[in-house]
Amino acid sequence: MDVFMKGLSKAKEGVVAAAEKTKQGVAEAAGKTKEGVLYVGSKTKEGVVHGVATVAEKTKEQVTNVGGAVVTGVTAVAQKTVEGAGSIAAATGFVKKDQLGKNEEGAPQEGILEDMPVDPDNEAYEMPSEEGYQDYEPEA
């Protein structure tokens, strides 16, 4: 019985440690998101679009440190934060509304985080759909 109880105690310690790591990862992701939003706020009209992409990228980098179902929630929060940063930029006159959601080359930025393969159960990952990809044929 002692062996059984000791095993359960060790398992509990492992769960607590994993929860603490997840909590730490979420806190880091939130900190990076805040950094990115402050970065966007300090940019001029020309830099705002690039700044919004930076927020998304920093958040995406930190999301990889967070495991399990938390990833889905962090990704949703990050996307809403990026959308909010863009709205703030438009409201303050840093950028025109028609410039939001495009990178410096004018290509749409939507789907940055949505296409990231995420499995809350950590069982399997699927690649994003290939609808947006084109076949590449090298020139002879």
Rank of each mutant, 00 (worst) to 15 (best):
E137N: 07
A53R: 14
G36V: 10
Y136S: 11
I88R: 02
A76P: 03
A69S: 08
A19N: 01
D98K: 10
D119V: 13
K6H: 04
S87R: 08
G86A: 08
G67K: 10
T44A: 15
E83M: 14
T92H: 04
V49H: 00
V15I: 09
T72G: 07
A56V: 12
T72I: 14
Q134A: 06
L100P: 01
A91W: 14
M5Q: 01
E137K: 03
M127K: 11
E61W: 01
A19E: 00
K80G: 07
V77M: 15
A91K: 09
M1W: 00
V82R: 10
E123P: 01
L38C: 06
A89W: 14
H50G: 05
M1D: 03
E131S: 14
K45M: 09
A124F: 09
V3Q: 03
K21V: 11
T92E: 08
V15W: 10
P138S: 02
E61F: 07
E126T: 08
T72D: 08
G93R: 06
F4N: 00
P128R: 13
A69N: 07
N122L: 11
D135E: 06
K21W: 04
D115N: 08
K6P: 00
P117Y: 06
T72M: 12
M5G: 02
G47A: 15
H50S: 05
E46R: 01
I112P: 05
V70F: 04
E137A: 15
D135T: 11
D121E: 15
A90D: 03
N65S: 01
A76M: 02
A11G: 03
A19M: 15
N65F: 14
M116Y: 15
V15R: 00
D119C: 06
P128Q: 07
V52K: 01
A11E: 01
Y39D: 12
D115V: 09
M127H: 14
G93D: 06
G86R: 11
E123D: 02
K58Q: 06
A78S: 05
K10I: 15
V55A: 09
L113H: 15
G41L: 10
A107C: 07
G51S: 12
L100V: 06
A56P: 04
V49R: 12
G67R: 01
A30W: 15
V118D: 12
E83V: 01
G36P: 03
P117C: 11
A76G: 07
F4K: 00
L100E: 08
V3K: 03
T44N: 03
V71A: 10
G31Q: 04
K96A: 14
A89K: 07
A78Q: 02
E139Y: 01
G84M: 14
Q99V: 13
M127L: 09
L8A: 02
E131R: 02
I88F: 09
A124Y: 07
K80D: 01
V16W: 06
P138I: 01
K60Q: 12
K32L: 15
G73T: 14
V71W: 09
V70N: 02
K21A: 09
K97T: 07
A53C: 02
V16C: 06
V95H: 13
G84E: 09
M5H: 11
V55R: 02
N65L: 15
V48R: 02
G51R: 04
A27H: 08
V37D: 00
E105Y: 11
L113T: 05
G93Q: 05
F4S: 00
H50V: 06
Y133I: 08
V40Q: 00
G93P: 04
K58I: 15
V15Y: 09
E126I: 04
V118A: 04
I112R: 13
L113R: 13
N103H: 15
E83T: 11
S129M: 11
Y136M: 10
K58S: 06
F94A: 04
D2R: 05
K23E: 00
V15A: 01
V74M: 06
A76F: 04
E35V: 05
K12S: 07
E110A: 06
G111Q: 00
P120I: 12
K32G: 01
Q109R: 03
E83I: 05
E35R: 07
K12G: 06
L100T: 11
G31T: 12
G68I: 14
T64W: 14
P117S: 06
F94G: 10
A140D: 15
D135I: 14
V15P: 00
T64K: 10
E35F: 12
G67M: 01
T59H: 02
E46L: 00
G73Y: 01
H50Q: 02
Y136T: 02
E126Q: 09
P117I: 11
F4H: 00
V16A: 09
I112K: 12
Q24K: 15
T64I: 15
T81Y: 03
E57K: 09
G51M: 03
V74F: 15
G67Y: 15
I88M: 07
K34N: 03
V15D: 00
K23Y: 10
D119K: 12
G7Y: 13
L100I: 11
E110M: 09
E137S: 09
A30Q: 02
V71L: 14
N103S: 06
E20T: 09
M1T: 00
G25W: 02
E105V: 15
Y136R: 09
G31E: 04
L38A: 13
T22G: 07
K60E: 02
L113G: 12
K43I: 15
T22S: 10
E110F: 06
G101V: 14
T22P: 05
K10L: 03
G68A: 00
N122S: 10
G84W: 04
D115T: 11
L8K: 00
V40S: 00
T64P: 05
S42Y: 04
T22K: 00
G41I: 06
Q99C: 13
K10S: 02
V37M: 10
Q79V: 04
M127A: 11
Q79F: 05
N122M: 05
Y39N: 08
A89N: 05
G73L: 14
V77K: 03
E57D: 05
D2S: 04
G86W: 07
K43G: 01
P108M: 08
A19T: 03
Q109N: 10
Q109G: 03
S87P: 00
E46A: 10
Q24Y: 10
G68S: 13
A17N: 13
P138C: 03
V74L: 14
D135C: 08
I112V: 12
T54H: 06
A29F: 01
T59I: 10
Y39W: 11
T44L: 07
M1E: 01
Q62C: 10
Y125D: 13
V16E: 05
E105C: 05
G36Q: 04
G51P: 02
A29I: 12
N103I: 03
G7M: 06
E131N: 08
A19D: 01
Q79E: 12
K34L: 09
T81V: 11
M5A: 02
G47C: 15
G67H: 13
T75C: 10
A85V: 14
D119I: 02
S9K: 13
P108A: 06
T75K: 14
E131P: 14
G36Y: 13
G41S: 10
K34T: 05
L100S: 06
P120T: 03
V55L: 10
D119E: 12
A18H: 03
P108V: 14
D121N: 10
E28Y: 07
V55P: 01
K97G: 13
K80Y: 06
D2K: 03
N65W: 15
E126R: 01
A85N: 04
D98W: 05
A91T: 03
K21L: 09
S129C: 05
V37T: 00
G41Y: 07
A17V: 03
K80I: 08
M5R: 02
E46K: 13
V52G: 02
V66L: 07
G73F: 15
E110Q: 06
T81F: 01
Y39Q: 06
A56L: 04
N103D: 11
K45D: 00
K60W: 06
M116D: 14
T81L: 04
K102L: 15
K96C: 13
A76H: 11
S129F: 12
N122A: 07
G41C: 04
E126V: 02
G47P: 02
V37H: 00
E131L: 04
K96T: 09
A107D: 10
E83K: 07
A124G: 09
D121S: 09
E105G: 09
V118Q: 15
T59R: 02
V15H: 01
E110K: 03
A11L: 12
K102S: 15
L38Q: 03
E61A: 05
A140H: 05
A27C: 03
G101C: 08
S87M: 11
I88W: 05
A76R: 05
